[in-house]
């Protein structure tokens, strides 16, 4: 095929009518403070893992809130659970527990 130098990309739009909020609901049950994020980015700025990887807790939590499951498991693995984010969070989000909750919900068998 001739390479024209461009191709059709996947639709970038988040369609909230088509996503499932199941993960968020489950994480919320285990760690209700996940709802209190106001996306200030303190957690991502202080994150030790973020110095060497593309990890961002702010972004991870946003993905959970928007039902964006793709690549989430791999993302959540990057955290070293050092807890620095919890020290700096102005909303008192239990960030470590949010990560642990996300990991354990994602590990659950699908048809539980």
């Amino acid at each position: 095929m001739i390479n024209f130098g461009y191709s059709i990309h996947k639709d970038n739009q988040i369609n909230m009518d088509a996503v499932s909020m199941e993960l968020l609901e489950k994480v919320k049950k285990r760690e209700p403070s996940v709802m209190m994020c106001m996306a200030c980015g303190s957690c991502a700025a202080t994150c030790s893992a973020a110095q060497f990887t593309s990890f961002s807790l702010r972004h991870l939590m946003l993905k959970v809130c928007r039902g964006q499951m793709q690549g989430l498991e791999k993302e959540a693995e990057k955290c070293m659970l050092c807890g620095k984010c919890q020290l700096v969070c102005p909303r008192g989000v239990n960030t470590r527990n949010v990560i642990i909750a996300i990991r354990s919900v994602l590990e659950e068998p699908v048809n539980e």
Binding site: N12, Q13, I14, N15, M16, D17, A39, L62, K63, R66
Partner: peptide
């Protein structure tokens, strides 16, 4: 009613009814 916004924190357009 379907709304179209950009989720400026996710850097992605978003729609929701």
């Amino acid at each position: 009613v379907m709304l179209k916004v950009e989720d400026t924190l996710a850097l992605r357009p978003l729609r929701m009814s």
